[in-house]
Write a protein that binds this DNA or RNA. Structure first.
Lengths: 259, 259
DNA sequence: CGTTATTTTGAGGATCTTCAACCATAGTGG
DNA sequence: CCACTATGGTTGAAGATCCTCAAAATAACG
């Protein structure tokens, strides 16, 4: 119940849904599976039949090279669609796997088709694909042009904002980051050793701190400043920032945290 | 006239268009401009009104960082749409500029809307967006996980195949590459000095040779082998290669467009 | 409580960058 | 016609960043 709302909350950064549209979403996301960590949702070369939507947990999109090294090209967090492209591109050019326990909804071709009959929903799905693309561009900038320490800082800023946008961050900028340093390394084009040392730096400079799998951003301003983070590329401000819209969002967040 | 066909040729890797659909394309790509090199087609922060389609020449998509460094995140070659996202995302999160003289078609919101009334065309535009996304993923892998020399080899393989797919490569694997080494460096997350030395290596190893602005791939097999190039990610083989399969695809497209 | 995964640290080395030239080419204006 | 300038390509030397290798410490897990 709670989980079902993450993607609605995400998409509502872009459009506001009517009650019927929300019900339509609920109806088409009923078929779900519970997956353990490191479970492949779809593999390179597959021609999958379903679209997957992350309801809870973390997953990632990645490619494996001939020499066995891995590059993670996207993190998939609650509210994210994994593979909206499967009805157009017949062959997966990458794999998708869970990083943690995940609750995942499976939507068939007809689920998507029926959802897309509502123009607001079709547009929102377009938006989410385009935002994924924009994130990918920023990751390329990150790996291509920033230092190891800046890269990690930038990724943490992005996750902070993305998770905030679906209500998964505490008031003190604490969020669950169930990702190993090896996985971070595979994300940023670095080695574990580097990642470890750079995280130590960020920590000793007082910008972040880690408590188990929780990450706390101690100084958001300085962290963003340090890596040149500009959240425009997440395109979270498409809707007019009217006070009414904001109030609705706040009320929902309160409801959910009590649930 | 010749130029008009590049994007049709590109999209026809995915669907086959009817004569009416081709005419529709012709009708909606009549408004064109001729641009000089280094001309900004659209800038970061813009809310452009038109979609741009490259008819001839090379352009690129890039971001500038605070320190002035640049990361190119896509090459746009004849047949490529620059900014199909402008009707959804209200603010450009990156800039687009020509690299050479470019002949560019400008399509308005209504041009696109009318084109998308034909399901085959709508699907083809979707396909082209998704392929752009796939290329972006592969570039991230490239910059994140491959050595300087492999990166350049991989980019050259990609351009070879992409330009081949629109008929811009000679029988002897020669094509026009009007890109400076500085631009290559900004593409691969390297410096000009490195790019220069790696190109020298590839040349001395007999894989490529350069004649002015022409690049010749002397040993395609070895070049692809060297960088682990696998063209699957370009998704150029969506149509069934059998003649029968093609007929079915064509029939489907016809049915849908008449619906 | 032993086993495995993950984090942490150090030392040495490779790759790529930075800096600083110099050369080649093409376009410009006297 | 030729000096002058701008752009791009080429090269070498020195240094920084990040990697590799190796090992220990810590945490997670059945």
């Amino acid at each position: 119940m709670v989980h079902d709302s993450f993607f609605i909350r995400k998409l509502e950064h872009f459009v506001t849904f009517s009650p019927e549209e929300r019900q339509l979403f609920a109806r088409h996301t009923r078929r779900t599976v519970q997956l353990p960590p490191k479970h492949e949702i779809s593999s390179e070369g597959d021609n999958p039949q379903d679209v997957h939507l992350i309801l809870s947990g973390f997953a990632c999109r990645y490619k494996i090279l001939e020499d066995g090294s891995r590059q993670i090209v996207a993190y998939l967090v609650p509210g994210d669609f994994c593979d909206l492209h499967v009805f157009i591109l017949k062959e997966m050019d990458h794999a998708i796997a869970t990083l943690t326990d995940c609750h995942v909804a499976k939507l068939s071709s007809s689920d998507i088709a029926e959802l897309c009959e509502k123009p607001a929903i079709a547009k929102a799905l377009w938006w989410s694909t385009l935002v994924d693309q924009s994130v990918l561009r920023e990751w390329l900038v990150n790996v291509g042009r920033r230092s190891a320490e800046e890269r990690i800082a930038h990724l943490l800023c992005e996750l902070l904002v993305r998770l905030q946008s679906v209500g998964l961050v505490d008031h003190d900028n604490r969020f669950l980051l169930p990702v190993t340093q090896t996985e971070l390394a595979d994300t940023m084009g670095l080695t574990v050793v580097s990642v470890n040392k750079m995280i130590r730096n960020l920590r000793s400079e007082g910008m972040i701190s880690a408590e188990g799998k929780n990450l706390v951003v101690r100084d958001v301003g300085r962290l963003k400043e340090f890596c040149g983070f500009n959240e425009t590329y997440l395109h979270l401000r498409e809707k007019a920032p009217a006070s009414q819209g904001n109030r609705v969002a706040r009320d929902e967040a309160r409801d959910l945290s009590s649930a």
